[in-house]
Design a protein around this nucleic acid. Structure first.
Lengths: 141, 141
DNA sequence: ATAAACCTGACTAAAATAGTCAAGTATCTT
DNA sequence: AAGATACTTGACTATTTTAGTCAGGTTTAT
């Protein structure tokens, strides 16, 4: 089980953005340089974040991106959802009515994966961008 | 983020094994049929489980596999470890001394992924095979 | 002997990942 | 109006991982 880099980068970029999000928009170019993420890749990621209204774009010279909500209101869940990073443990969830594997019962471990998903999503649900930024400042990375 | 089928199958197979683990060894063939997992694939998985001493093999005619410990003592962590299913969220962990990305500091979200890993591992650490079997019986699938 | 079942290692098709590349469009500054 | 900056979009691709298959064993109960 692993997290994809799209999810990781999205969070990194947003923390960076939030830190520098004073009055002026932050350009992807700056984030790219500071975080060592390819500009083209960042563009893909921010396109998705914008569609989910997590950030707003400011076009033109001196443009960039701005948070569209307060850092407190942006949960990790929202970010991951936006970039299609999902916690998926079950193959069997598709056939909702019946069981897994095309059988009439749930597979032996169905409930386990359900629990696990909830456990992980709880974590994401509780953490906000603000939490991450505070954590950063405190530890003075 | 997703769990691979190797991990899922390992757990499914072990629950099956534990349920039928009375006096006689359980053959992979039976598990294969009951759980709908390819026999060849099961052999790969059980080879790993055997090396980690989670199961014991009984060769020859009427052979099969037996649990090597009490179901209570086999935690999900052990199973996942055995089949190389790891929770890995960080790329940055490799360069231990210095920071991530080859920089001298940790990346902005380093602590986050650390916390996440711990959160998930806690879950795996607490769940034993026995828990899963009980859960199965109670809910009568 | 022979059949059942474990054992091992090499191989591979398909999917996912982690990007790159190209060709725009919008808007600010001068 | 021109140019620069920066967002926007979509197609493309190399690499890696996954999820197995396949072939050819070895061991042991009957």
């Amino acid at each position: 089980m692993k997290l994809t880099s799209k999810g990781r980068y999205a969070v990194m970029a947003l923390v960076d953005l939030a830190k520098f999000n004073n009055l002026n928009p932050v350009s992807l170019r700056d984030i790219s340089i500071r975080q060592g993420i390819s500009l083209d890749y960042l563009e893909q990621i921010f396109s998705k974040l914008r569609k989910k209204e997590i950030v707003q774009s400011v076009r033109g010279n001196q443009g960039g991106y701005v948070l569209n909500k307060k850092a407190k209101e942006i949960k990790l869940t929202n970010i991951f959802e936006a970039v299609d990073e999902k916690v998926k443990t079950l193959q069997c969830k598709k056939e909702s009515k019946k069981g897994c594997n095309g059988k009439s019962t749930k597979c032996l471990t169905h409930n386990l994966w359900d629990e696990l998903e909830n456990h992980i999503n709880d974590f994401f649900e509780k953490k906000s961008l603000e939490d991450l930024i505070k954590d950063n400042i405190e530890r003075r990375l």
